[in-house]
Design a protein around this nucleic acid. Structure first.
Lengths: 240, 240
DNA sequence: CAGTGGTCTAGACCACTGA
DNA sequence: CAGTGGTCTAGACCACTGA
């Protein structure tokens, strides 16, 4: 094994927890005990325990010690992929077709609802994502021009608005809501569906610090699209 | 500020990245430079940089240095909450009604498809989740009795099968697929919907190590339920 | 109030790798 | 091959808090 020692300690304790040798609520040896057991310094033990605590497997309490955490709710990483990338990976051709592009003046109800800059102009962009010329999803997006003035000059013939934003504007905070809705007449027309067909609806807002950047609402054809979230060893231990 | 020094260093560099003072691809000062700038030891600087790297904000390359990462795809934490807990928090009464409970013999196509133990019995459980006696979701679940023998004896009048599993069986790996589907006749009957109504479909498989524990398929009434995923400062920096 | 984890120091040796 | 990050040591002082 060429594993670093802190990683070895971490994985041994992890294995004990997962196999049930250490049960939820039970106390781990103290850092001092682990130092002696592994014959290493306290920093090394601490690094291993910090990683386990960061991963939610243990809880560390001052004066009391470290304890195996009780299992918690399902909390997993959801990758909301770049549509273009995903379509190309499937071996299909990607195209974004702009259907609308408007400047929204400050203070409209639409702008207020999106939670973006109250006193700045917004850029409204709507369009359809195609895979091999078959519509897969449509989106309607508001972008704060106060936060991203360069956006106004973009043609979006190479990148979709989402891909452009991802490349050019770092975000720090995002919230995504996922629901299942029936296709409205407008959505049905854009996606060539019958009205009422099930669509996966994704609404996302992103911020940079406290400044709202964009809000987007996407409808995916239900029969053609799903999202996958994972949690597991692939997600390496934090801090390591 | 009573923040630990490593946390202060981390947040200062984070702020520089988020405000654009440090741009994607640019090189950070070396650990040695940061030591001198903050007047601290290298371990402290390293802890700050490790946290940033764990959070995906920077990349560390040997010999070359540390670099501001280029923005990546949207990757966020999705909490798939315990339905009971969520319903109770809304101020409603929760009830799980068992509608089916069968032992599935080894080797059936159903068992093989679920990716659970090939050579062991499975427990099949189906039922409906009610909020104030209104159906909100229905689920169909397979549980490996080889992995969780105690499950066979559970009445599920206190806890739903999912809540029971969460409390008693730690899982290490999980995969969730989210889609929008039209209600089948069976689902529509259980949820008192019209056939074809949009439903949020969640399929989850969990493992403990390499051993499959359970597979569950849930249909949520589309008009009544949505999932929310977040990414942001609330998620504390890993390893810290 | 004693034991625990949280933080930090001032070193050290190493593997790696790009200039 | 020199500079970088990765790891580790053997200490230290501190804040916290439950026995």
């Amino acid at each position: 094994m060429s594993l670093p020692l802190h990683e070895k300690i971490r994985s041994e304790i992890e294995a004990d927890i997962l196999t049930g040798v250490r049960t939820p609520g039970s106390r781990l040896p103290t850092e001092h005990d682990l130092m002696q057991h592994y014959g290493c310094s306290r920093m090394t033990v601490s690094k291993a325990l910090s990683a386990l605590a960061g991963g939610g497997l243990i809880e560390r309490r001052k004066r009391a010690g470290s304890f195996v955490a009780r299992p918690k709710a399902h909390s997993m990483m959801l990758d909301i992929p770049d549509l273009e990338q995903e379509i190309v990976q499937r071996g299909q051709r990607y195209r974004f077709e702009l259907s609308e592009r408007t400047i929204v003046p400050p203070g409209t109800p639409q702008a207020r609802e999106a939670g973006l800059a109250e006193d700045g102009e917004l850029l409204m962009i709507a369009g359809v994502h195609f895979a091999d010329d078959v519509p897969l999803a449509c989106e309607s997006r508001l972008v704060s021009l106060a936060a991203v003035p360069e956006m106004a000059a973009q043609p979006f013939d190479d990148d979709s608005p989402g891909a452009w934003l991802l490349k050019h504007v770092p975000w720090t905070e995002a919230e995504t809501r996922i629901a299942s809705v029936a296709a409205s007449t407008g959505v049905a027309a854009q996606l060539k569906l019958s009205v009422g067909a099930p669509c996966l609806f994704v609404e996302r807002r992103t911020w940079r610090g406290s400044e709202g950047i964009t809000q987007v609402r996407q409808h995916f054809i239900g029969s053609a699209y799903s999202l996958v979230a994972r949690f597991g060893p692939a997600k390496r231990a934090p801090g390591s």
